[in-house]
Computed example of a mutant assay.
Amino acid sequence: MKVGRVEANDVATVVFNDDMALGGAIDGLLGRSFLSRFDVTFGAHEWRIETKE
């Protein structure tokens, strides 16, 4: 799975065939199995995901 400049292998995924499965304005979800591999910072107006050092 690749998001921006970060990438992880062997991430469990689920694919929905229904465009409205998560709601009309949501493209997808990133879960803890993916995000725990990176340094993630959530702010009021932006979020960052970077490779752990």
Rank of each mutant, 00 (worst) to 15 (best):
V14M: 07
E50T: 14
E7T: 10
R48T: 13
M1D: 05
R32A: 08
K52T: 06
I26V: 15
F16N: 03
D27G: 13
F16S: 09
N17G: 15
G28A: 11
V3N: 07
A12T: 11
M20V: 09
T51L: 14
A25I: 13
G24H: 09
G24P: 00
E53I: 14
F42K: 01
T51F: 10
V6R: 05
V3S: 06
L35F: 01
G4T: 03
L29Q: 01
R48C: 02
V11A: 03
F16C: 12
G4N: 03
N17V: 10
T41W: 04
F42T: 04
L30Y: 00
F38V: 04
W47D: 08
A21D: 13
L29W: 00
V6C: 05
V14D: 00
S36P: 06
R37P: 06
M1H: 02
F38N: 02
V3A: 09
V15K: 05
K2I: 10
T41P: 00
A8F: 02
G43V: 08
E46G: 13
V40T: 14
S36N: 11
L22C: 07
R5L: 08
V14R: 00
N9Y: 06
T13L: 05
A8P: 04
V3R: 05
A8G: 08
A12R: 00
T51C: 07
S36A: 11
G4L: 03
A8K: 14
K2F: 05
W47S: 14
D18A: 14
I49L: 12
D19H: 06
G4S: 02
E50V: 14
E7M: 09
V3W: 07
D39H: 11
V40D: 04
V11L: 04
D18R: 06
D10V: 03
G31S: 01
K52R: 12
A44D: 04
V3T: 10
T51I: 14
F34K: 01
H45L: 14
E53S: 15
G24E: 12
F16L: 06
T13W: 02
L35M: 13
A44M: 05
V15P: 00
D19L: 14
E50K: 10
K52D: 01
